[in-house]
Amino acid sequence: MYKLISPLMQLVDWPMRAFQSRFGQRRLAWVFLAPNLALFGLFVFLPVILNFAYAMTGSEHILLRDRPFVGAQNFAQLTNCKDYLNPNSCQLDVFWRAVHNTVWFIVLQIGFMVGFSLLTALILNRKIRARGFFRAVFFFPVLLSPVVVALVWKWILQDQGALNGVLSSLGYQPYNWLLDPSWAFGFSVFLTVWFHMGFYTLILLAGLQAIPRDVYEAAAMDAASPWRVFRKITLPLLMPTMIVVLVLALIKGVQTFDELYAFTGGGPGSATTLMIQYIYETGFAGAPRLFGLAAAASILLALVLVALTAVQLWVTRRNANG
């Protein structure tokens, strides 16, 4: 591979050398940065600005110059609710249902995810045989694609699937799980926990293994009971890692889309529609394409994410500084 690209690199050497002797070594840094920065500018920073432009203009036109300025109207529509706790009282009830779903989804998902990840990490941190194998078992779903994960579980949960097969052999009636809003939502939470918990287990396991052994040895010398060791040593020393896990899970949870879209398509009804899916359907899937509304919704989402990411950076920096 390296041998293959070497002649190509040699080709670039000449113009770079010319630039270097003309403008000096320090300005060369900008040449190295240029491609990356150009893509960031074009596909990240420009869209951020455009996002505001679209959020403040209306109509179905796609070109900015055809779109009339509507000010905060899109935001007003999104936030027009009699009672924020009751999506039906809102002008855009689907949006608020998505918000409600997202909040519930995150609360449940993070609870189960952190619980199972911690339990698994603690067990994997014990002296067990074939630890590498078991770690790989819990980790491997992380690598699967969201669509594959969704199909794996759909195949089990479909009306003639394995779950119903097992249940009917035990004498229960088969049930169409994904057509029931509550079960569909419950299985959505389960599926994402199944999908992602290996990742958090890995981080927590690394955190556990970073706790120095001599702390435990000192505790053993102090005749601390195992439960006290866990409460007074393991948990406090694992806390920084736990916070990282929580914040990461939050950031990713808010952005959940792929696996649920392929799993339930947001249904039945809008029972499993989350924020991103609302944006996708408003802006791209449905007709008319309401770009303004979708942009406004994504700005609201971005506010949440920026806050969460700022917390994450702050936490990791604090951890890094000891």
Partner: peptide
């Protein structure tokens, strides 16, 4: 700027990104 882009996942700029592309 690089840290900034870390804060802006693709999911929040879908609409304008689509238009740019």
């Amino acid at each position: 700027l690089v840290i900034g882009t870390l804060m802006i996942p693709q999911t929040v700029v879908l609409v304008p990104l689509f238009l740019v592309v």
